[in-house]
């Protein structure tokens, strides 16, 4: 069981592909608003050409983290390493290499799509007007229409076009699909995927929707109450978590058997099932949740994927794999103190 419920679950990066250059890395980012600790230590790593899904519940600290990454607010503590340069606050030069789509779009209502492009182009030396026009066409945005006359979906697309037209090294999206209907959301995610597939664009996007992460992200970071709870590849995450159902009745084991149980490795087979199960921290497990009903005990636990291989045949225990949603809910809903 986790001694500190807020400590981050670390799973190794088990990528078979060679390591890529890191585009963005943060170290112990912290930010407080008055008495509210919005971000309490965020460490994340985004590799080049990857899509990073930054998952968290509403109010978990996603937007505050992104605003720190964008240099809109300054971290109280911690460092941001962006495109090879490490600093407390993102500089103007670094911002010029980032494409950013904020949670809400606050365009000047009197500006047309084209005029907005012209205005924003003044801030990016690498602005590509042709690319912007192409994006407007591809995204089916009427260049002459005022931003106040665009629908919610179109406004997000326009924000994306503005963010992509200067060919940024990193695309940061803050809950871009919030408020979009299913079709628009699907369309938007496909654009993101295509950008990575076709242009090798690195994308960091925050969301509270698990299906979006499952759909497009290579790597996922889960933030809860301002603190990173998990960071790793999606495959690694699902391979690390299991649901364990300990079936009754549970008998007191012989003392010799009990000793054996605490030894690492597969447990010895016994006529009397042990009351103290082997899924403990000492054995390399991290218990996220523990529930008891009708004498049956359910556990949700993390472990290095190879560890599970040793315990898959544990008697009186049914071990099941979990979806990302189950894992996220287990992480988000963990109340270790009540166990």
């Amino acid at each position: 069981m986790l001694e500190n419920p807020e400590q981050s679950i670390t799973t190794p990066l088990t990528n078979s592909a060679p390591p890529r250059p890191v585009v963005l890395r943060t170290h112990d980012l912290k930010r407080t608003f008055g008495k509210v600790e919005a971000v309490r230590g965020v460490d994340l790593t985004v590799e080049e050409g990857r899509i990073y899904g930054f998952l968290g519940r509403n109010g978990a600290g996603k937007t505050s983290t992104i605003r720190m990454l964008m240099g809109i607010i300054k971290p109280d503590k911690g460092e941001i390493e962006l495109l090879g340069k490490s600093r407390r606050r993102t500089s103007v030069a670094q911002k010029q290499q980032i494409g950013y789509v904020s949670q809400g779009q606050y365009f000047y209502p009197w500006m047309t799509c084209h005029a907005l492009g012209r205005f924003v182009s003044g801030f990016y030396p690498s602005w590509d007007a042709q690319e912007f026009n192409r994006l407007l066409t591809v995204l089916e945005l009427p260049p002459g229409r005022r931003s106040s006359h665009l629908s919610g979906g179109m406004r997000v697309k326009l924000a994306l076009a503005l963010a992509l037209a200067h060919r940024p090294a990193l695309l940061i999206l803050d809950e871009p699909t919030a408020g979009l209907d299913a079709v628009a959301r699907r369309e938007f995610l496909e654009i993101i995927q295509n950008q990575t597939l076709e242009h090798g664009r690195t994308t960091f996007f925050s969301t509270h929707r698990i299906d979006e992460v499952e759909r497009v992200a290579d790597r996922v970071g889960i933030i809860l109450k301002g603190k990173m709870r998990f960071e790793g590849s999606l495959d690694n995450l699902t391979a690390s978590a299991r649901k364990i159902s300990l079936l009754p009745p549970v008998f007191e084991p012989e003392s010799s058997e009990l000793e054996d149980v605490h030894k690492p490795g597969p447990p010895p087979l016994s006529s009397k099932p042990p009351q103290i199960h082997p899924f403990t921290e000492e054995n390399g497990f991290e218990i996220l949740r523990k529930e008891t009903s009708n004498g049956r005990q359910d556990l949700i636990a993390f472990a290095e994927p190879p560890v599970w291989e040793n315990y898959n045949l544990f008697p009186n225990a049914r071990i099941e794999t979990l979806s990302l949603e189950d894992i996220f809910i287990a992480l988000a809903g963990t109340d270790v103190s009540s166990i």
Binding site: M70, I72, V92, A93, K95, Q96, Y100, S102, G104, Q105, Y106, F107, Y108, P109, V120, F123, Y124
Partner: peptide, 14 residues
Amino acid sequence: HSQTQLFLEALPLP
């Protein structure tokens, strides 16, 4: 009032 300062703040300009 129209919150367009948020748009400006996101641009690379202090």
